[in-house]
Amino acid sequence: MKARLAYAAVLMSGALLLAQETDRPESAPAFRSMDLYFDVAGQALAAYQVEVVATRGRVRFVGIEGGEPPAFRSPPFYDPKALRGKRLILAAYHLETTPPTGRVRVATLHVQIASGEPAQFAVNVHTAANAAGRRIPATAALVERNTE
């Protein structure tokens, strides 16, 4: 049966809420994709570390995809130790290409969400840096991608 999820995405202060519709079989989990954006305003983003936590719902991260600009096309690395605690800590850097500026899709997260409870995520930027290695102000947000 074709399962379908509609999401009520509430993007505020780095939090994303995914709610579930009722036409899905009770026991079937859903798969969703969420784009991870960094906004560094006028700065150039060369490196970052970010934490994504499912604060609500039974969520499993099932894939980490690279982002849009060539600098972040390779998928970021993750900390396997943090994953044991159901947190996803991602980090990426690049040295070769021109760092992107403004709002940047740095990665896409693929997740499996168990049925019965909407999922909610919190995004916490640990650090962001420019090509000189200096910290720059940044915000991050998760945006669900329409996968149907």
């Binding site: 991260f61 894939g63 995809e65 690279g66 396997p80 994953l83």
Partner: peptide, 12 residues
């Protein structure tokens, strides 16, 4: 896992 230009990192 690489699909065309897209690269998806698997998780342990």
């Amino acid at each position: 896992m690489v699909i065309g230009e897209r690269r998806i990192r698997g998780l342990i």
